[in-house]
Design a protein around this nucleic acid. Structure first.
Length: 223
DNA sequence: CGGTTTTGACCGGCGC
DNA sequence: GCGCCGGTCAAAACCG
């Protein structure tokens, strides 16, 4: 095993401990709650709003129950007119259900989303510990792949059981950036697109090389 | 010609 | 074990 892969493991462990994300989305999408729990997602920001373009608002999220010292809550709709909060939920006091789409869906399917047995939850946590940070959300959209400012290469497509629409798998095209996302349509409502992100970008979005100071500033907070 | 998509094969985890 | 299933690989096709 090379030292490179060792450092990759260390990095993924680090990333598991803190999960921040700035997620850009266009104003014509309608983010909706996933429905695992009624807990609203906290929105946080220490970003400079003037660095945001009107057609590409950014949202900053923290999936921990405690806030990082320098973060503060932000009224998103007011702060970014035309944009909407991505509504994401946590399933237990310190665990976010949206962190894993399949768990989320399993809970939903069983009709018992709050009643996950402690044993199962233990398993889920153990498994997740080894994973990159994740979150997912659903939007009403005609297009499958939402423009989030990053460049993606498709590396797979799969028909998942009991769904009509295939799931697509994407990887960030940037060298050494291991961020992945998957996109699928909801079987119950094909107007809905579910996007799941996994990992954090090691770079800012590439809206084709107009690399500004602002994006460099934001770099630390990107996925 | 280089980057991206397509698509069947492959593989590993999990439940039985 | 075995089979199912979701995720990934990789060769070929596609495309600008």
């Amino acid at each position: 095993m090379s030292s490179a892969s060792e450092s990759m493991i260390n990095q993924s462990l680090l990333e598991d401990q803190e999960m921040f994300g700035i997620f850009p989305f266009h104003t014509n999408f309608t983010p909706l709650p996933l429905g695992c729990n009624n807990q609203p997602f906290k929105t946080l920001a220490n970003i400079n709003p003037s660095s945001l373009t009107p057609d590409l608002p950014l949202s900053l999220f923290d999936h921990h129950h405690s806030l990082a010292p320098k973060q503060k809550e932000l009224d998103f709709p007011a702060h970014f007119p035309g944009s909407q909060i991505l509504s994401l939920q946590k399933s237990t006091p310190n665990y976010w259900a949206f962190g894993d789409l399949s768990d989320c869906m399993n809970m939903k399917r069983s009709g018992d989303h709050l009643g996950v047995s402690p044993m199962k939850m233990k398993k889920i946590k153990a498994r997740r510990k080894m994973r990159e940070p994740r979150f997912c959300f659903k939007t009403m959209s005609d297009v499958d792949v939402l423009d989030d400012g990053y460049k993606w290469r498709k590396y797979g497509q799969k028909v998942v059981k009991d769904t009509l629409h295939p799931r697509s798998y994407y990887r960030c095209t940037q060298d050494n950036c291991r961020v992945k996302k998957r996109v699928e349509r909801l079987a119950e409502d094909p107007r809905m697109v579910i996007t799941t992100y996994e990992g954090r970008h090691i770079h800012s979005p590439s809206h084709d090389d107009e690399d500004s100071q602002a994006s460099a500033q934001l770099n630390n907070f990107f996925w």
